[in-house]
Nucleic acid binder design. Structure first.
Lengths: 208, 208, 208, 208
DNA sequence: AATGAATGAGTTTTCATTCAT
DNA sequence: AATGAATGAAAACTCATTCAT
């Protein structure tokens, strides 16, 4: 698991820091959703968080820290949701449920996900690297799941294609967030998940 | 096909406009690749294009026009590459070749594609709508191909899943561009295309 | 009395706003006098006011706001000076003193007045309308004075000519400001006032 | 009479110059009326004149030259209209007719006059001086007329007040142009002229 | 003589960040 | 710890003027 990046704060009280950051993330997500990271000003972020610009800067160092905070939050939620499946036995059913859980999470947090995928490149080099690491971690979780399905004989997938397949799961899920305009007219999330899962498992030829 | 959006120019000579726009696109792509649209200044764009800031503004109206010019170019190339497949008979082989062509194009223009998918949201409302229209057009081309495979009996895909499948093709291709970091260590483009195509056609269960 | 137009400020402390605006007006008048509104840059205005460009924009929204601030100031002074005469009884003597007060005020503030009459058209539509309203208010004050002279029998002026006469007073006063070059060689302000007043009251035929 | 200021042109053919300048003045007046001198661009001036920006600069040196051309034109018209009255005998009737002619001219050319009085300060020092000279010339014409009325015994005005009175005629006329908003609701030009003339000749006390 | 593409200095305005209170 | 006034670098865009054709 990637080493956490510390966002510096001049405030000492850890509980307070946690509370304020919570406010910052909440406000920022709402704001970024409306106008994107670039068009949101730090003043607006502070206001959305419920305090003054001066206070905002007691809990972050730069505007980009806010973006990082938001991204970090998302990954923590994903990791939290998916980690139980890590320890289950490798069956197709486990895989289905993990995919379901992941896609559903994306659905609930689609605003946050969209922000993350659109603004990542605005992060400074090192932070971006950390985000990619965590993204990779997500892919790895699915890769592991696939591998244990292979190990248990439920799947016959050559090692070299594990990563492609895992990536495909992750990307298609994200697509529900960042390409929602392409789906929402024709599909509900449940339909999307089902179709995507079947297509993934059985392909075009085996999918009715 | 969506109606083209005109980018205003105060210069009258159409050939000259075409030439200068070519320079602008070339310079901008290079620049955006390095620092992204937001961090690239208009002065830098002008310089990269090989002329002064004043001249740049003879050929565009706003900085966003440059982004639009870049996006428009990409779609034109995609449409150009894929349109021949529209008229072919609906066989799996045609589909395979269309996918190959599309993925390969993305590979060659992966910088441009990445820019497009990361910066689209920076475009003004109407231009963004136009881009989404063209994106939809791309999906439609694959949807048509799938439908004609169904018509010819090579595929048995319910109409309601055509769109999901077409979107999947498009998204997975784009992923090669905007998530290249996740693939490039383990796959060459040919391997990626092959694996992706097989996975798509035969699914996990039918894919060795 | 026309409703005041609010100039937006992002600063909350009203006393501070008043103080800074005072500095802005003072600096701007000096600057506009030297080079006119158009040739004065916002940076110069800030400098003349004694602070940075960033601070200037904490107290105004646009450059035109500065012009408005200057104009508004002038009218406030005029209104302040002339309002006492409103309540006096309608005698020629009151009229004489009001004219004197008004012309003298213009003399003391002739730079401000000149700026105002030369730059008004640079104001945005709504602000310009407000200025004209206040200008009309000034004319009205003199018109009222004339009417009360008529009422008291000191003057026999048909209602239809009241406005022309009131306008004449106002315009001739302004002329001392914006056409000062035409008078200053030959007249002192006192002479100007006296001559103008006599000419106005008794005309060419009755004026020696 | 003030010495004419030469506006340099790189074109030799004098007839052509005259023709082009005519076009320039016509176009510029229309344009300045709409947006004022500052907001009109040289490109727009050229277009309004009916030729290209390059050609415009064959007939002027700077943008300010255009303003000068417009101002100069106005004075020429005024001088042309008023000079006949110079040679007439000094009667009140002549004076009345001269005022009428002058006010009526302003009425017909009120756009040009307004431009002139609002934009004069945008002229470079030397040109502005020339304009003031010509303005002075206008005042002088009326001053002469007044003097000859005094000489003929029709008027008894001390020399020291001649200038004030002449200026008053001139200024009140201009006011019809630049303060038209204050008059137009209540007066037609004929009423304005009549009232103004009577007020001027007989004053408030002698004016019914 | 006429054209219009090219130039770049100059302008207004924004906004992340700091720091005295 | 919290505030918010002050700062000034930086950015997009304009437009008078030139000059090669």
């Amino acid at each position: 698991m990637p080493k956490d990046i510390e966002v510096h704060s001049s405030v000492k009280d850890e509980t307070l820091i946690a509370m304020r950051r919570e406010q910052i993330i909440k406000g920022a997500v709402k704001l970024f959703k409306e106008k994107g990271f670039h068009k949101a000003t730090t003043r607006e972020i502070a206001k959305a968080a419920g305090f003054s610009i001066g206070t905002l800067y007691e809990y972050i160092r730069t505007k980009e820290d806010v973006l990082y905070l938001v991204c970090d939050r998302i990954f923590n939620e994903v990791t939290l949701k998916l980690s139980p499946y890590q320890n289950e036995e490798g069956t197709l059913d486990t895989l289905r449920r993990a995919i379901y859980e992941y896609y559903y999470l994306i659905h609930r947090m689609h605003i946050e996900f969209t922000i993350m995928y659109q603004e990542t490149k605005s992060l400074p080099k090192d932070t971006r690297a950390y985000i990619l690491d965590r993204e990779y971690e997500m892919v790895s979780m699915f890769a592991e799941l696939l591998r244990s399905c292979v190990a248990s004989g439920e799947l016959a997938l050559k090692e070299q294609y594990i990563l492609i397949a895992a990536n495909q799961i992750v990307v298609q899920g994200q697509a529900w967030a960042f390409r929602n305009w392409a789906y929402k007219k024709d599909y509900k999330i449940e339909q999307f998940i089902e179709a995507q899962t079947e297509l993934f498992l059985y392909g075009l030829k085996g999918f009715s």
